[in-house]
């Protein structure tokens, strides 16, 4: 999957039999409030992992820690063998390997959809413009937005914007994709088109980590479910088992409210 020699070099310590993302004993405090209180789990390459839990339980913070948008206080996170909790961390090198999609899309409003997709590979990876353009057009087709290349974000619906955001992250050829409640701000009708796009990605073998409230979707595509509450993982397991008979009282209560 490594697209350039640079990522290959930093992946020297990582082999496909080891987890692509390895989270161990992670603590994160905002002032006096401890958002994450010792989170540990691994994600293997090609896995789809869904993290669910009540709001304020630290799910989004956990995703943000993985690409170093938020620094952690204790513990270790390794992405393809690179330690995130390290003062000498090359954040930019890490972020080239980790794509992220946000709840509020966060497209660049002064650029067209296609330019949004092309920007990072050209500016950050210094790739050839014509080559990037070709790839970006393919990605737009992949997220079923061919014909909308020249539209500005303001002219697109929420679901369309979110799919552009997915294409924009994919253009960097990441090893892992993080989805932070990507359908939470969408109309019910447009949720589906975004979920279909994510499912296609998962089926192609992309490693995905989702924070979501779409339980039905999680059950369908996840290889592993994690339930967080108060900054710790309360329960985990393959979705069939997880949804059929949750063991922990808090999981039961949460699923009872949602399902």
């Amino acid at each position: 999957m490594s697209s350039s020699s640079e990522t290959a070099a930093t992946q020297a310590t990582w082999t496909p039999d080891r987890p692509i993302v390895s989270i161990h004993g992670v603590h994160k405090r905002f002032g006096d409030f401890e958002v994450l209180r010792g989170v540990t789990f691994d994600v293997m390459k090609g896995d789809v992992v869904c993290v669910i839990g009540p709001s304020g339980s630290g799910k989004s913070t956990l995703l943000r820690c993985i690409n170093a948008l938020v620094p952690i206080d204790e513990g270790s996170i390794q992405v393809a063998g690179q330690e995130v909790h390290d003062p000498k961390l090359d954040k930019l090198a890490l972020r080239k390997k980790v794509g992220m999609v946000f709840q509020q899309y966060n497209l660049f409003p002064h650029k067209t959809a296609l330019q949004n997709v092309m920007m990072a590979p050209i500016q950050v990876l210094k790739q050839d413009k014509a080559e990037v353009r070709e790839r970006a057009l393919k990605l737009m087709k992949k997220v079923r937005l061919n014909g909308k290349e020249d539209a500005y974000p303001g002219e697109l619906s929420g679901g369309q914007q979110q799919r552009v955001a997915i294409a924009r992250s994919l253009a960097m050829n990441p090893d892992v994709m993080l989805f932070d409640e990507v359908t939470a701000a969408l109309d019910p009708e447009t949720v589906k088109e975004v979920l279909v796009t994510i499912r296609d990605l998962a089926e192609e073998g992309m490693t995905c980590m989702l924070v979501t409230h779409e339980m039905g979707f999680a059950r369908e595509i996840a290889d592993m479910m994690y339930f967080t509450d108060n900054g710790v993982i309360v329960e985990s397991g393959p979705p069939k088992e997880f949804f059929a008979n949750p063991r922990d009282a808090r999981t039961k209560e949460f699923l009872g409210q949602i399902l």
Partner: peptide, 15 residues
């Protein structure tokens, strides 16, 4: 400018 713009750019490895 909304902070989401900074976050999006950072997550795409922009300096």
């Amino acid at each position: 400018i909304p902070s989401g713009q900074w976050e999006a750019a950072e997550s795409l490895a922009f300096s």
